[in-house]
């Protein structure tokens, strides 16, 4: 397969996996919890290496997910004491975990084959060089791994669609009809964690957050339908993948960084020109209303 295509597809699948979950995070006001979870992945990778001496995808995903769950439980625990607000709890826990990860990497860097740069920039440029042979066909490993995670997320969102919708919209009500909103929200964060671990390799820790939050927030500005919102978020992610890769090649820059920038530009555009909730549309509507009121009042007089 063409190297460029491998990278674009890897990036696109990463964006798909993130875009499927992002809208729910934005709607649950848990955007920053995803930030925390994606940072918690780093110590998970380090711990997996120290315990099992492997960086095989499955082991790393399990290790990362365990730490992500620990992160969420720690935040919940701090919050439930009533002594620490939820923002401060998030801001206490994830730097701790990330710092532990950084310390692990600096201490055991040679063993882990993971340098700190890759936690920031990702290693997507190397995606074409790591190939698995499946049934006689060479497929880039990253496409297989991230593709399956994207498929898992898709299955999760489709299967639990109405449960996710109800528990996000009205947790109190969904509890009375037996939907267990807290369990669903934990499940959601586990999915975020698994996505973050896998995406971590290609786009790095911080840009996972970008792909989780920015497309979801952009889609939120564009539509009033949940299904459309999810589809748009995935679409915006793909725009980021394609245009971001092109930008990185042209500008000789980090692919992860340019992907993030393209998503940022999409957000800015939506913020300005969204037909319903954009700044321009709102301003025009307000102006029109003011004028209509003025004419009506004048006519009355």
């Amino acid at each position: 397969m063409n190297d460029d295509l491998v990278i674009i597809i890897t990036a696109g699948l990463t964006a798909t996996a993130c875009g499927l979950l992002g809208p729910f995070l934005v709607l649950r006001r848990a955007a920053l919890l995803s930030d925390a979870v994606s940072h918690a992945v780093l110590p998970g990778i380090v711990a997996t290496w120290l315990l099992l001496h492997t960086r095989a995808p499955f082991a790393v995903i399990v290790g990362g997910a365990i730490f992500a769950v620990l992160c969420v439980l720690a935040i919940d625990g701090l919050r439930s004491t009533g002594l620490v607000r939820s923002d401060a709890a998030i801001g206490l826990v994830f730097p701790l975990l990330f710092a532990l990860g950084v310390l692990g990497v600096t201490r055991y860097a040679s063993g882990i084959h993971l340098d700190l740069d890759s936690t920031i920039y990702g290693e997507i440029a190397f995606a074409p060089f790591d190939v698995w042979t499946i049934g006689g066909v060479d497929v880039a490993r990253s496409i297989v791994v991230i593709g399956s995670i994207a498929a898992l997320n898709l299955a999760f969102v489709i299967l639990a669609w109405k449960e996710l919708k109800a528990s996000t919209f009205d947790p109190g009500f969904s509890q009375t009809i037996g939907l267990r909103p807290q369990m669903l929200s934990r499940l959601m964060l586990v999915a975020v964690a698994i996505t973050a671990v896998t995406a971590f390799e290609s786009v790095g820790a911080i840009l996972v957050v970008t792909l989780l939050i920015v497309p979801g927030a952009t889609a939120y500005l564009l539509t009033d339908r949940l299904a459309v919102m999810v589809a748009l978020a995935v679409g915006i992610g793909w725009i980021g993948a394609v245009a971001g890769y092109w930008g990185a090649v042209v500008g000789d820059s980090s692919i992860a960084g340019t992907m993030g920038l393209v998503c940022a530009v999409c957000f800015a555009l939506a913020l300005l020109v969204s037909p319903k909730y954009g700044l321009i549309a709102t301003a025009v509507r307000r102006r029109r209303r003011a004028r209509a009121t003025a004419t009506a009042l004048a006519a009355e007089r």
């Binding site: 957050v209 920015v214 993030g260 998503c263 940022a264």
Partner: peptide, 11 residues
């Protein structure tokens, strides 16, 4: 916060 953080960091 998430959007601004991601945008600036990407830049």
């Amino acid at each position: 916060i998430g959007v601004v953080l991601s945008c600036f960091f990407s830049l």
